[in-house]
């Protein structure tokens, strides 16, 4: 339940983050767990610094030190950022640098209604929920039933289920559902063919318009998505990439080699000298290898209905343009002009 409110003390059922000299672990605070035979046994969490009796965490304060059999660690209350670093991976996930940009690009503030597909491991979902609370809502979809179910269970265990609805659904084939038509302030897609989801995003967005964002690892996906966005009268379409690098900070002592004495004749004439002195620096070194690519973020604004441009459908770029008719009728505003020739 430790995702819902700020807490001072650890209670049974919380998820806590154990911080051990630069390693983070998420632990569910259950005094007992079932073993392979299905019997309840004492829950002992093994770390590189020895064993931790999970029961002992109950009642201790967040931010405090915990004793392990061969050292100690600290316990933190999970934030969506700590969760992204420790969650059980059921899929590829999106990390904080991209998540942060997604939240900002979608113009999300408390009270917004946002749609997400697919749910995956719920890394982004936790950050979405925190941002739209307390009076907004996240609708998240995954066509993998097990993932959708596990996500729902996780939101309940984390105490944030009332801000989110997790559903099992193929959103590219079926859209986001009738009941979400005209409801969303923002739509986010992280799935293999986002361009097919654009028309559903249009249907789901409020008539005042909204923001769209899609995360795609490949540039070809981005190109097709941008075309689809243009066709559906989105404006301010833009694509970007965000990367974060962690610098390793350390003290470094480096040798100083003096060459100035060579200007003058002296008794000794060495060819190889030991460095004459040392100098101390605090340095930040760039890692030898670092993430070079996560995904492209493509963002766009759907303007309010009254101003949406009439779609000029270019048949050779939008192969699924015929299927768009319902959406385009929505998009085609008050004056009732038709935008697709094929439409009666």
């Amino acid at each position: 339940m430790s995702f819902r409110h700020y807490k001072e003390k650890i209670e049974e059922g919380d998820t806590v983050i154990l911080y051990l000299s630069n390693h983070l672990h998420a632990i569910e605070v259950k005094p007992e767990i079932k073993n392979k035979k299905g019997e309840l046994i004492e829950n002992v969490y093994q770390t590189t610094f020895g064993a931790l009796k999970v029961r002992n965490l109950i009642g201790s304060e967040y931010g405090s030190k915990v004793e392990l059999s061969k050292g100690w660690g600290h316990v933190l209350q999970p934030t969506p950022e700590l969760w992204s670093l420790t969650l059980p991976h059921r899929t590829q996930i999106i990390y904080t640098p991209d998540i942060s940009m997604i939240l900002l690009q979608l113009d999300l503030v408390p009270g917004c209604v946002v749609i997400e597909a697919g749910t995956g491991s719920g890394s982004l979902t936790h950050a979405l929920i925190r941002r739209i609370r307390p009076h907004g809502h996240v609708y998240t979809f995954d066509f993998h039933d097990h993932r959708a179910m596990l996500a729902q269970e996780e939101f309940e265990a984390h105490g944030i289920a009332d801000f989110v609805t997790a559903k099992h659904r193929d959103v590219l084939a079926e859209g986001f559902g009738e009941d979400l038509n005209g409801k969303a302030d923002a739509v986010f897609l992280d799935l293999p063919s986002p361009w097919t989801g654009v028309k559903h995003a249009v249907a789901a967005m409020k008539k005042e318009g909204g923001r769209f964002c899609s995360f795609s690892p490949c540039i070809e996906q981005v190109q097709r998505t941008c075309l689809a966005l243009q066709e559906h009268s989105f404006q301010d379409i833009s694509t970007m990439e965000v990367l974060q690098t962690e610098l390793k900070v350390s003290r470094r002592t480096i040798p100083v080699r003096d060459l100035s004495f060579l200007k003058h004749k002296s008794s000794n004439n060495p060819v190889e000298e030991k460095p004459s002195s040392e100098k101390n620096y605090i340095v930040g070194s760039w890692p030898a290898t670092a993430p070079g690519h996560t995904g492209y973020l493509t963002v766009a604004t759907l303007p309010p209905q009254y101003i949406r441009r009439k779609c000029k459908v270019d048949k050779d770029i939008m192969e699924d343009s015929k299927a768009d008719s319902e959406v385009d009728q929505v998009a085609d505003h008050e004056n009732g002009k038709m935008c697709i020739e094929e439409n009666p």
């Binding site: 911080y19 630069n22 983070l24 600290h74 933190l76 700590l82 640098p97 540039i219 981005v222 190109q223 941008c226 075309l227 379409i237 833009s238 694509t239 970007m240 990439e241 965000v242 990367l243 974060q244 690098t245 962690e246 610098l247 900070v249 930040g284 492209y296 493509t298 770029i317």
Partner: peptide, 21 residues
């Protein structure tokens, strides 16, 4: 303090056009 991290960001925008991305 725990989980101390010094980070730096890099961000790049793209021109997306058919055949000219």
């Amino acid at each position: 303090v725990a989980a101390l991290k010094l980070t730096c960001n890099w961000m790049r925008n793209y021109q997306i056009l058919p055949e000219r991305t």
